[in-house]
Amino acid sequence: MAPDHRADATDTALLQRPAALGRPVFGPRLVTALSLAGLLALWWIAAIVADSRVLPAPPAVAEAFWRDAATGELFFHLAMTLMRVIAAFVLAMAIGSVIGIVLGMNREANRFFDPWLILFLNIPALVVIVLAYIWFGLNEAAAIGAIAVNKIPNVVVTMREGARTLDRDLEEMASVYRFSAGRTLRHVVLPQLQPYFAAASRTGISLIWKIALVVELLGRSNGVGFQINLYFQLFDVAAILAYTLAFVAVMLTIEFLLVQPFEAHSTRWRPRRAGS
């Protein structure tokens, strides 16, 4: 995804290249559009061939989308799910990063807590959700907490790996030049952890929203998960797909408008590799 916007520059590079070599027939954006159109066409054809209620064609899904969008219901449920996803994401990244960095920098602590980590990594999401509802009641805090707890072990593992690779040389430099703890964290430690943080958030955000739907299905009276359960009982596949695609669209928007620009900003110091 990343080198897409740089392909044009390569094409006009001063280097004289054989025209047939490496020059794409279509622009990268066009390829993406064609690929998505192909998937849509495949779905459409399959729906026509199957001619069944369980596989509605795209227009039926669009219709379901407009029906719930017109009443505002769709946006309300999207917003509820998004709120839970964001709250759980912030919670999981904050707690997971702190634990991960501490474990990565402290060998004794890591040796002691590693079995706990493996245990938590292997507890199924469903079990955490059910136990959270039983122990803390069918409320918002239990729902968000359950989503976060499912994600925290993954964040810990990634951030621990990052903390283990911290550069000793830079740490020594900071100590010789008497950087305060805050200055060391902000200018020396966190920039080194940035790629790990980005990796953890990437995998985190997709995992979290999938778990959020289960949480809503089991114990909330709103949100995309709740709606999908409702339409499952009504056997309305078009509405199920409409909600799913709408939320995927929301997540893609976040990716393109927030995650990618943030990443580009925080890695601006990296020398651009020539020709890529």
Binding site: R183, V188, P191, W269
Partner: peptide, 27 residues
């Protein structure tokens, strides 16, 4: 008093500019 070090490797913070690298060492 303060000690300054010039290491074998420059040990600059790659994500900070030259000036920021110098200023970060100041009290």
């Amino acid at each position: 008093g303060r000690i300054a070090a010039v290491f074998q490797e420059p040990r600059l913070l790659p994500w900070r500019t030259v000036e920021e690298n110098v200023r970060l060492a100041l009290s």
